[in-house]
Amino acid sequence: MTSSASQQRLRARQLRLSYGGPPVVDGLDLDVLNGTVTAVIGPNGCGKSTLLRALGRLLAPKAGSVLLDGARIDKMRTREVARVLGLLPQSPQAPEGLTVADLVARGRHPHQTWYRQWSSSDDEAISTALVQTGMGDYAERAIDQLSGGQRQRAWISMALAQGTELLLLDEPITYLDLAHQVEILDLVRRLNSERGVTIVMVLHDLNLAARYADRLVAMRDGQVLADGEPGEVLTERLLDEVFGLKAMVVPDPVAGTPMVVPISAHSANHADGEPVAEVAERSA
């Protein structure tokens, strides 16, 4: 983790990204540290999903480059990339009637050739993925009949079956309840510790991001404003700078990681007569 930048497998250099209009991301540099879980945070529209799409070569850079193992990712054969780098877009849609087992089996696509569609290693990878996500019992169920959390786990199983060392997740816990959010993030953490998978994910929940990521990348207006361990990044000043949010940052009573407590106009009415400004001042 302390290795120098040149040894990181996935890097972005002077990246400029756009959808045909003005650049969404411009001049961005990023090194994804090997073997860590990185969470990209930032307000809506700051370019974090766009960045993730570029890292996953879904979006070709207008300028600059994304490097995978030192080679430009958009010049590599997409199948080779897919053996190393997996990605899960935000709320993916499966065709109706597709079973979990079928979905997960499709994760083996980059390892198959047109003449060899099945092998025992495929079966093994699929079974392992199903077990790791706890989806073994649901293998024959149709995706559309699952709950949101199960569905998300099914998709993650697919990404696992792909057997990549790098995994990009775009808002993996959106639309899930808190219990399922925690469940998915625990799973992510386990993948990282047991399989050594390097993970980059876009998250909206700052507290969960701080607890589950080794490293936070805070973005605003297509720029990286801060990049480091949660404790360094998640400060009151940064929250103001990135989100325009007045908040207190206190230690998470469970994990000790930073926890964001927003200060809003509404909270003034409930602060036992203590003006908000004073609370903020004292905490600062």
Binding site: G56, T78, R79, A82, L85, L87, Q93, A94, R106, G107
Partner: peptide, 11 residues
């Protein structure tokens, strides 16, 4: 599975 996923799977 959608074009993004397809691309991610190396298609």
């Amino acid at each position: 599975l959608g074009e993004d996923v397809a691309k991610g799977l190396g298609q």
